[in-house]
């Protein structure tokens, strides 16, 4: 069976709209009858990636591939890139501004959460060029 493909554009600095793509994927997975635990893991991981694109990378593009046995999410941005991935993966480490923190973000838990909630995570990043984060959750 061909996977179902969903595509989203995440706009830069759009704090109010952030979460719409994840919300839409959640709704779609629910209507397709995926197990709640799978839906929750995809939602949490994708929301964190979506927020990261907004607060750290001037927006980007998300592609979601839904297959019966796996949900794959690919987040592509042309932001500043991540200079030190090991550091970025550490819980609590964040370069978020005070403004962003005031909104409830910037806890430095995004990437660790994504790692925790997915079965596969790959981050390709080039400083000054952008970041592509690919993750998947097995059903």
């Amino acid at each position: 069976m061909e996977p179902m493909i969903l595509e989203y554009t995440v706009s830069a600095d759009d704090f109010s709209g952030a979460g719409e793509a994840s919300g839409d994927v959640k709704k779609t997975l629910k209507s397709l009858g995926f197990p709640p635990e799978v839906i929750r893991r995809v939602s949490v991981a994708m929301y964190e990636a979506e927020i990261n694109m907004v607060i750290h990378a001037r927006g980007g593009k998300i592609t979601v591939e839904i297959s019966p046995d796996e949900i794959r999410v690919c987040c592509e941005d042309v932001g500043p890139g991540i200079p030190d991935i090991d550091l970025a993966m550490q819980e609590g480490w964040s370069t978020a501004s005070d403004k962003v923190r005031g909104l409830g973000f910037g806890a430095g838990m995004g990437l660790p959460n994504i790692k925790k909630y997915t079965d596969y995570l790959d981050i390709k990043t080039v400083v000054g060029q952008g970041t592509t984060l690919t993750m998947s959750v097995a059903v």
């Binding site: 704090f15 952030a18 709640p36 964190e48 909104l103 409830g104 973000f105 806890a107 838990m109 995004g110």
Partner: peptide, 22 residues
Amino acid sequence: LSICMAKAPEDSAWVTVMGNRN
């Protein structure tokens, strides 16, 4: 929000001091 996102149980009443769209 990152903690809430990951830890808030389904069907819980969530008490917070944040009131924004996020």
